[in-house]
């Protein structure tokens, strides 16, 4: 069909007019146990379908708090008010020391960065947002991290431009309990120029739950071609199922595009009206590998 379409089909530009929906509040929040700088919450508003500026309208001056707590089966969550942090739109060095509207950090990132907010595996976190008079909330739990057994790489090869490259491999054992899910991130150790989970490398095409491979030794080859000689910091991130489901739906939605598009809605874990997004509890194991 692709072949046939390639030969016969023709494509033309048309005007599409759709009733624009109400704007959604878009929340992107993280709590992890490894990188204090990477615990932040971004709050914004969605755009019209025909707006091509590709930046959400930031929501400034929102009240954003994260509270640590514990979950006990049968008793539910208990929140520790003494471990509640109010996040603010502060100037952080990673963002060039400018206040970026709609991006909320623990203010201790500026005053006492060694004690800024950090997640603890096994603990739960409550995110509360009050923005433009409306309240939103989300809960996420950091599972226990899964140990990286080793990082290796495939034999090197030369890419089209003749540069020597290889692919990164991660080896770990899936825990015996069913229902574990992982996300895979990495970044170049040398690179200080990028910031944020969205700027890290990640592999999105792997069945990353253990539905089919429970308890097995897992060996994953990431398809990215990385330069030999680069030092890679790898993050094996364990997440609870709702967080996995959100990023899974996100990956489906992001590769969506072009003629075969079907509407994919993100599986948000945030409660409130007209809201989309995820409060992601990332339980991180990390290791460094030199590409050889």
């Amino acid at each position: 069909m692709i072949l046939l379409m390639g030969l016969m089909a023709c494509e033309k530009n048309i005007d599409i007019s759709v009733d624009a929906g109400p704007p959604l509040v878009v929340v992107e929040g993280y709590i992890n146990n490894s990188l204090r700088a990477y615990n932040y919450v971004i709050v914004g508003k969605s755009l019209r379908y025909d707006q091509a500026d590709f930046a959400n309208t930031p929501i400034e001056g929102a009240e954003v708090t994260i509270t640590e707590g514990t979950y006990t089966p049968g008793h539910g969550y208990s929140w520790d008010d003494s471990r509640s942090v109010k996040l603010q739109e502060v100037k952080v060095p990673e963002l060039g020391n400018v206040k970026v509207p709609g991006v909320y950090f623990d203010p201790r990132r500026v005053t006492d960065s060694a004690h800024a907010l950090l997640g603890v595996p096994g603990k739960s976190y409550l995110l509360e947002i009050t923005a433009e008079g409306k309240k939103y909330s989300a809960i996420t739990t950091l599972p226990l991290p899964v140990r990286i057994d080793s990082l290796t790489n495939t034999p090197s090869f030369r890419d089209d431009s003749g540069k020597l490259r290889s692919r990164l491999m991660v080896h770990y054992k899936d825990p015996d309990t069913l229902g574990n899910a992982q996300l895979y991130y990495w970044k170049n150790v040398e690179s200080k120029s990028t910031f944020g989970w969205g700027a890290m490398y990640t592999d999105r095409y792997i069945p990353n739950t253990d539905d089919l491979i429970n308890g097995q030794a897992v060996h994953i080859t990431h398809s990215s071609q990385l330069p030999v000689g680069d030092s890679i910091r790898y993050f094996l991130i364990s997440v609870e199922r709702p967080v996995h489901d959100f990023w899974d739906s996100f990956n489906k939605a992001r590769i969506n595009g072009g003629p075969f598009t079907t509407p994919v809605s993100l599986k948000s874990n945030i409660r409130g009206e007209n809201i989309v997004g995820c409060f992601s509890g990332f339980s991180v194991s990390t290791a460094v590998h030199l590409m050889q």
Partner: peptide
């Protein structure tokens, strides 16, 4: 079903 809005997500910054 057509999109009636859009937003950006998974944000990061390249200094």
């Amino acid at each position: 079903t057509m999109p009636n809005g859009r937003f950006v997500y998974n944000l990061g910054y390249n200094s």
